[in-house]
């Protein structure tokens, strides 16, 4: 049995999803010869630390009841620095302006020789090369499948399953909120404003939807793909971004007359003038990229395998936890 000690930094929907996943998957993990022991969980109020393993059920209960996980005033950064463990699961909220606090947490984890698994896009979209350099320097693993496409495997698909292939281009729907809005507008002929209100009521869109509907979230994910799969050195500011706020129901009807739907498509192409852009595009109704609802989809164009398409849930607590758990397991298998 291989024991890996983890900390979970951030205990919102994703953090709690991981705790639930670890509880549910105990048997599976044991049969795989893995003992994933959570030694600390922290949120913005403080932390609970137990070197024998935090009681995850009690932790989730406490968070629900009191709004915080904290049983001590030890802050996240101190957990990362001072609690003896191997792997940091960094799942604090994304910040696209300066990447904090996640950026500091990740860098600090690397400096203390700890592996990092994250779902936090901000730091990667802004400081990808710095993070990778720091991880390399300290000879630790850094995995971030959950940052792009939620449950949908895309980074690991390109790098592991399709190893040996040259990835020529990737295009896809990388934001479930936009996909929901456009799909509903298409189906019901409703206006953008109306459907946005509906999405907000259902919890699919934030009160301030800018991050999603202006294409910023999709652009951040595209940056991560561009840097990690195509070896580019780009940041969010290099992406040409057009959102969905100007799309009209009439435009969707006209597209429908031609057998097409309108989708917010992110695309990144390899090459010297490698294009990287997010914009609404016409997609034939029968094309695999024309998925509905809140689904995400990605089409990888490869030299040997040809086109390979994956689709799945792009968000959600358990879905994101799935991607994080697969990264944790991969690190356990690859580290000594």
């Amino acid at each position: 049995m291989k024991t890996i000690r983890l900390s979970i930094i951030g205990f919102g929907a994703v953090g709690q999803g991981i705790a639930n996943a670890l509880l549910q998957k105990q048997e599976y993990l044991e049969s795989a010869g893995l003992n994933l022991k959570v030694v600390a969980i922290s949120d913005s109020h403080g932390a609970c630390i137990d070197l024998d393993g935090v009681d995850l059920e009690a932790a989730i209960e406490r968070k629900k009841e009191s709004g915080s996980i904290a049983t001590s005033g030890v802050m996240s950064l101190e957990v990362i620095r001072d609690v003896d463990h191997e792997l940091v699961v960094e799942v604090t909220p994304t910040n696209i302006d300066n990447g904090e606090p996640g950026l500091t947490y990740m860098l600090e984890a690397f400096r203390h020789g700890r592996h990092v698994v994250t779902s936090n896009k901000g730091p990667l979209a802004l400081k990808y090369s710095q993070l990778c350099d720091e991880a390399k320097k300290n000879a630790v693993h850094f995995r971030y499948e959950a940052t792009v496409g939620g449950a949908m495997p895309i980074l690991n698909l390109a790098q592991d399953a399709l190893a040996g292939n040259k990835i020529i281009a990737i295009e896809g729907i990388l934001n479930g909120t936009c996909n929901y809005i456009l799909s509903r507008m298409t189906e019901e002929g409703l206006s953008y404003q109306h459907v946005l209100g509906e999405a907000q009521e259902l919890g699919y869109a934030e009160t301030d939807p800018t991050y999603d509907v202006e294409g910023i979230d999709a652009a951040c994910k595209l940056v991560i793909l561009a840097n990690s799969i195509f070896g580019m050195d780009v940041t969010y500011n290099n992406v040409e971004v057009t959102g969905i706020t100007r799309i009209t129901p009439e435009a969707l009807t006209l597209a429908g007359d031609e057998g097409m739907v309108i989708k917010l498509i992110g695309e990144v192409k390899d090459g010297e003038n490698g294009e990287i852009m997010v914009s609404p595009k016409l997609v034939p109704e029968q094309h695999p990229l024309a998925v509905g609802g809140t689904l995400n989809v990605a089409l990888l164009k490869t030299d040997m395998a040809g086109p390979v398409c994956v689709t799945g849930k792009g968000a959600g607590s358990m879905e994101t936890a799935s991607a994080i758990l697969s990264d944790i397991i991969a690190i356990c298998k690859n580290s000594h």
Binding site: E171, M260, S279, L289, P307, C309
Partner: peptide, 10 residues
């Protein structure tokens, strides 16, 4: 709004 590039999956 332009169409996506044609590919083998179109």
């Amino acid at each position: 709004i332009e169409p996506i590039e044609k590919d083998q999956l179109s």
